[in-house]
Design a binder for these strands. Structure first.
Lengths: 267, 267
DNA sequence: CAGTGGTCTAGACCACTGG
DNA sequence: CAGTGGTCTAGACCACTGC
């Protein structure tokens, strides 16, 4: 800011924003203005001020609101867009990213068929095998930052592509943030789960960590994935995080890799 | 540029650069100036004007050289840095990224131990098992954009962590770009391969694609990785690319995942 | 202290979208 | 056509590094 006045938030119709400053004194941790703006936008996203799929205010509007230049807002949005939290569309506006869009339907699914491309096998078929409320084991509790014995929602489903069962998934969700979600609801829902979470519970999965191993198929796998016991399967354990970096889902997937492979790009 | 003169390259000590312009007429494909600058910097990298680890000219110097503003050069460098081709260090300069740095030693190796962190097991031990010149099979040729029967360098090695053999790797390199590399040289080299490629052959691996599957251990795996035949292993097939997006290495890795796992982050 | 990258502003104009 | 994001410039100052 230098010779310019500190950006300060005037009272508006919206809840007041924190006062922003460069804190030009000998601060131990210097934080650039655009990072603070990024934080403010993130707060609005967390608070649900703009919902997934909606358009956020224009760069100029935000610049006025935060009392900074358009360029500073722009840099903040740039980073949020790079993290896939926002989506810029030239000539239209900037939108809150969502899992409901067809294009990014399978952004978190890295399994592709040996021949053809992602989706060339037609739409995925999702069959819920089992769905119940249960208690978190120590392992599940650790992954979801819960206490052992806390209530969790548990589901098991099979994903089929081109008619063949390819993936078996066990899913654990903390019960609290998904209050009102019944086992029946889950069992009867056949769309992408992350889209359901967004629209019904204002829970958006933003980032995930996967641990991948090779394991032998068990009797359960034999039955549900139609592979012989002992057949090597890809075990993909995923913990998905929200805007707040809270773990919100544990998912253990078992992938058949005789006709598909897990694709990864190293940059 | 608008009312400013087109940026044009004057004759310098360096080879002349292409003339840059915004091509403001009704061009079918509009390319912003900073993208063109990015391309010019990339060309210099490809040509080896600045070698891995070296510092490139300052933003101001490049702005003068390309007849654009510092901000435009900055945006070009920003993208190259985001792609891990350049490395910015505040107060020092911008450097050509390299695999020789300790910090990014294992940027392409995503296997981590169940307990502890990457490198907590001490330095990796690399044992070359076999190393020879051979002919590209159809499969290898396809992956490396060669013709079947072209000469390739082939190596097999075992990586051990904490004394235990964890990874078996088969590596194929096209012979032409690595002219002068002998099987003996490879066999006696025990550092990170990508660092050797940079310093000795001006070949820098920039990006890689991996296909991951679960496969049963064979007799070879039993012998070299000390696992029972049939034990599920992670099969990681990697094709690594250079600045020019040419495939320069095919690597088939077999990972034990009983004590380690493949870690991946989904953004 | 000079030199580097990093931040911030202000203003102009371009490219794209939709009514 | 107005409104949006996208590009480009010029200039000022800040933060960090090493001599």
């Amino acid at each position: 800011m230098q010779t310019f006045p500190d950006p300060v938030i005037e009272s508006t119709l919206l809840p007041p924003e924190p006062i922003i400053s460069l804190a030009s004194s000998a601060t131990p941790a210097f934080s650039p203005l655009y990072q603070q703006i990024k934080g403010l936008i993130l707060n609005s996203l967390r608070a649900g001020e703009w919902k997934p799929g909606e358009m956020i205010p224009s760069e100029m509007d935000l610049a006025v609101r935060f009392h900074v230049s358009q360029g500073t807002v722009r840099k903040a949005i740039d980073e949020l867009a790079a993290e896939n939290l926002l989506l810029r569309r030239q000539g239209k506006g900037t939108f809150v990213a969502t899992h409901a869009e067809q294009q990014v339907q399978f952004r978190f699914l890295k399994l592709v068929p040996d021949s053809g491309t992602r989706g060339s096998e037609g739409p995925a078929q999702r069959d819920i095998i089992e769905c119940k409320r249960s208690r978190a084991t120590a392992e599940v509790a650790r992954a979801l930052a819960l206490r052992t014995g806390d209530t969790v929602l548990q589901a098991r489903r099979v994903l089929s592509f081109g008619g063949a069962p390819i993936i078996l998934e066990d899913i654990w969700l903390p019960a609290a943030p998904f209050k009102g979600l019944t086992a029946e609801q889950l069992a009867n829902y056949h769309g992408p789960m992350y889209a359901l979470f967004e629209t019904e519970f204002n829970v958006r999965m933003v980032r995930a960590e996967e641990k991948i191993r090779a394991i032998p198929a068990s009797a359960v796998h034999e039955q549900l994935l139609k592979v012989a016991q002992g057949t090597p399967l890809l075990s993909v354990e995923r913990v998905a995080y929200t805007y707040r970096d809270e773990p919100m889902e544990l998912r253990r997937g078992y992938y058949r890799t005789d006709t598909h492979y897990y694709q990864n790009t190293l940059g």
